[in-house]
Each structure stands twice: as structure tokens, then as C-alpha cells.
Amino acid sequence: MARVKYRFNTPAGKVFDAVNVTVLIAVGTIAILPFLYVLAGSFATEYELTTRPFFLWPNEFTTDAYASILSSSVFVRAFITTIAVTGVGTAIQLVLTALMAYPLSKIDLPGRRTIMSLVVFTMVFSAGLIPTFLVVKQLGLLDTYWALILPAAINPFSLIIIKNFFQELPKELEESAKIDGANELRILRSVVMPLSKPVLATFALFYAVGIWNDYMSPLIYLSDTSKWTLQMFLRQVTAASSLTGEDLGNELPPPAQGIKFAVVMVATIPVLLAYPFLQKHFAKGMLIGSVKG
């Protein structure tokens, strides 16, 4: 397919390509530079961070900040916990969302409009922190990992978008599967889901990032520090310092800038790596064309 495109290249097209590549590389660089500063800063000394305004390579290289955070077993355990909860939680949330999105994508489903209206309503209005907390408590989920997964299991936004994608899939394959006697669950599993890999990969990523970056849930649902996730520690070191004299005990220096940066890195890089991994699924959507052909 790519070959066809190249054959029809025009001079104007080449100019556009050149401009496009330049612009996107520039945009990519602007996007990544501040991140590289944080990365460089996490390996710099406190003195260098205080005296140099902006740099991409530390003059004096030190891994003290990382040694300091990784020496804490609490932190290491939180790291493992976060990966596990994110993995399991993403799977559960994605399956629940797809299960609900599929029936709703059938435009003749009775009650569909009512359900969709209610879903949209919950997207705009949430009852708030304390009422949700009380429900989670009533369900006996406090201090369990379920509290990090279930209350946000189906994001109305994701549900609506996935539903929309399902709705646009070619109906021929479903019809023929139905004629072969497949039930809806099987159609969903063996026809709809494979065809929707790009969108499912996208929302797997959204859900994973949602769980990974969630700090409110562990904060209010988990009082047992041994169950905490990384965000609890990330927030603690990066939250804007409002430390005025009185807050602190007698002789406590503020958290070192280097430690901040190191925690940001440790808490960000794993989830960043999820994207290139999921990216390959986006290309697989090409399938649709070939199936139809």
C-alpha cells in the first residue's frame, strides 16, 4: 500500500513531507526537553540544581537520589503493587466496559436511550468524595485493592467512545457469525473484539494510566501504608510546598529537589513504556480492510 503512495509523489507533496517531518521533529523535541531536564536533574547534586537554571546533562553525576528511594522497602513494595494493580485492574475495567458497550452499540436494543442518558448523567455529575467513600466502605472494600479498581471500573467517557466504535464496525461479519449459530458473547469475543484492537488498546492504555496515576483512591481508601501505590509517594514529594515555618518540627530541611526528580522518574517511566508496547496494536486495525476485501 505504501508503495502505491510513493508512486504518486508530486513535488508539492515532497515539500509538504519535508515541512511535516521538520515540524513534528521540532514538536517532539519541545515535548521531551523538559522531561530530559527532570531526568538529568535526578542525577545531579543538590548544589547543581540550586545554581544552574536549566541543563540536560549534570556536571557532577550522582545516583544518591535513587539509592535513597530504592533503599526503602516501602517504596519498592509500592512499585510492585502498582504494577500488579494496574495490570489486573486494566483487564477488569476493559472487559466490563466492552461487555456493556457491545449491547449498547445495538441501536434497536430496548431501553438503550434511557441507559445512555443515565450514563451521560453520571459523567457530568458525580456524587463527590465522601458519598462515594461511604459506599465503598459499606461494600467492605476499604483497605483492599478492589477499592482502587472497582469504583472507576467503567468510565462513562470510555464506554461511549467504545460503543461508538462498535457501532461503526461492518455488520456483515456479525451477521454471518449469527447465521452460523454463534451467540452474542461469542460474536463479541471472536468478531467484534479482534476488529476493535486499536480502540481497545487505546482504552487499555487510558485505564492503565488512570489506575497508575490515581492518587485519590489510595489516599482515601487505603490506610494501611503497606498497600500504598507509587502515586502516594510521588504526590508527597512533588506537591507544591506550602511549608511555612509552623508546619515543620524544629530542624527539618525541605525534601531535596533531586529526590523529587528521581521519584518522578521512577513513577513515570514504567507507564511510559506501556505505550510503545501497545502501539503495535494500532497498526493491526488494518485488518478491517483486508477482512472486508
Binding site: F133, L142, Y215, L219, T225, R235, Q236
Partner: peptide, 21 residues
């Protein structure tokens, strides 16, 4: 001791007061 990050202490306090443990 139930340790709470100082940056989120106020929020946690309000939620805890609303619960019954």
C-alpha cells in the same frame, strides 16, 4: 500509626471523620 502524606492530610481528615472507623 496511620501515616498520611502531609500534602493530603486535610482531605484525608475530612473523609476519616465521615467514616466510622
Amino acid at each position: 500509626v496511620q501515616w498520611v502524606p502531609n500534602t493530603a492530610y486535610g482531605e484525608r481528615t475530612n473523609v476519616v471523620l465521615a467514616g466510622d472507623d
